[in-house]
Amino acid sequence: MFDWRWDFTWQILPRLVIATGNTLMAAGFGYAIAVVLGLVFALAQRTPSRTLTFVVREAVEFIRSTPLVLQIFFVFYVGPQFGLRLSPWTAGMIAIGLHYAAYLSEVYRGGLDSVPKGQWEAATSLNLSTTRTYFRVIIPQALPPSLAGMGNYLVGIFKDTPMLSVIGVAELMHTATAIGSETYRYLEPYTLVGLIFLAISLPTAAGIRVFERWVRRKLGLS
C-alpha cells in the first residue's frame, strides 16, 4: 500500500545521521545555555533587590507567554535592526537557550523553595556567606527535586530543535525537507526523522530517571 523504497532509505540515511549530529549539538548547546541562565534567572528573583526581582520576573513571564518560533524569528530577523547581526546558529542558540532558561528558572525556583528554612538558619549559625550557602548547601539539595523537570525540558528542547529549521539551521528537519524538495519523496525522510527522534527521546527519558536516583544516592539523600 505504501510506496516505501528501501534503496532510497539507505541512500539518504547517512545525510540524516550527520544532521542528527547537528540536532544533538543544537539541543546540547541550547540546553547548556538554558541550565546556566535559568539558574541566574532563579537566583536573581531571590535577591533583596525588588527592582531586579521584578524585572527578571516579568522577563520570564514574557518569554513563557510567547511562542518559541516567534522568539527565533525575532532574534534572527529583528536583531539586525538593532545592529545584532547573528548567524542562524548563534541566533537559534540564543533564542532557544533563553526560552528554556525561562522554563528552567521556574523548575529551579520550585527546587530552591523546597529546601527547608532550617538549612538557611544552620548555614547562618555557621557563618557561611550567602554565596557559599547557595552553592554548598541550598543548590545541592534543590537539585534532586529539580531533576525531573530538568529532564522533561531536556527532551523538550530536543524536540523543539526542528523550529530552528525556519531560519536555516541544518538540523534534522531542515535536512529532511531539503531531501524531499530535491527528490520529491517525503515519506522516507520524514519517517526516518520521526524514528530518530523516538530512538533518542525514549532512552534519554529513561536515563534521566536512572540519573535522578543516582544523584539522590550520591548526595546521601536516600
Binding site: G118, E121, N127, L128, R136, Q141
Partner: peptide, 30 residues
Amino acid sequence: RSNIGMCFQHFNLFPHMTALENCMEGPVHV
C-alpha cells in the same frame, strides 16, 4: 556571629554531607 553557635530542635544538619563533612564545613570554608 563567630562568637555564637546554635543547636536547633530539628538538628538542621546538611543532609547531603556526612557527619564529618557537616562538622568540617564551617571550619574549612569560614
